[in-house]
Amino acid sequence: MEEKLFDGAFYAKLSKLRMSNRVKLTMGLSGGRKSTQKGNSVEFSDFREYMLGDDIRKIDWNAYGRMNRLFVKLFQEEKEGNYRIYIDGSKSMDYGSSNKSIFARRIAGMFAYVALYNLDRVYLTQLRERNTVPGKGKTGRQAFSKLLVEMENMTFEGNTNLHESIRKCPISGRGVSIIISDFFQEEDLEPMLRYLAYQKQEIILVHVLANEEVTPDLEGHLNLIDMETQRDFRVSMSNQVLKVYDKTLKKFRGNMEKLARKYRAHYLYVNTKDGLDKIIELSKKSQIMDYKS
């Protein structure tokens, strides 16, 4: 029986989450997020002395009474946040007893849910080998159900070049780009990060691996077949080989982490067997999300 993509437990977890204020936004339509720009809102930000041309309605008369000088109140302008969620649509994501594709969509759903409930705009895009269709921006809580339908209809095929696919999606203004992938690709990931950084994106790399990839339970002489390319590779398994594999995997993750640090990106590594709790924990640790108080 196919695993249900989003269930009650999933929603229960999400209800208490919210995006952290750490992500600063300066552009976009008015929304529910505090912008670094000062503007018209109820959220007080600062005082400054009155200058000619200032709206006299914003003069703080109480302060004038105490100090006999004119001060105007500054208010933080509330802006709409842009969240771009990219799901790696390659065949390699459709792997594992606890399937990476399902887990990736749940993570995407989590981020989308939190963003939409913060009145932010969410662009969900599946990165495909060909015909990557940029997701349309969706906002409002009612958009979440549409995103879920979109995610449920996703198929995972072919071999995706993440950078090439992301470049096909137009990015305007600051925002947050969340890339959910196993990052198994021969091509260098740095150009992608460089591009996103250039586009003033706060980057979150969610590295999803199946447990079978972290601790492979393989033995004997095997002809390993790449699900994406159908190329094969003969391997004689042994303890030594598995040890080296483990080292290679750690090195791979280390390189990813280094790369993320270089572009001030968040790197969240998760094993599908650990579940969503792990990604929530990591998000909180990285101050991407926190619980509503």
Binding site: A210, H221, K251
Partner: peptide, 19 residues
């Protein structure tokens, strides 16, 4: 050898280079 589908050969190739 027995055929075995895996998500990607990326890490295995790297592993054998290391070995």
């Amino acid at each position: 050898s027995q055929d075995k589908d895996i998500s990607s050969l990326y890490l295995w190739r790297e592993t054998y280079k290391n070995i």
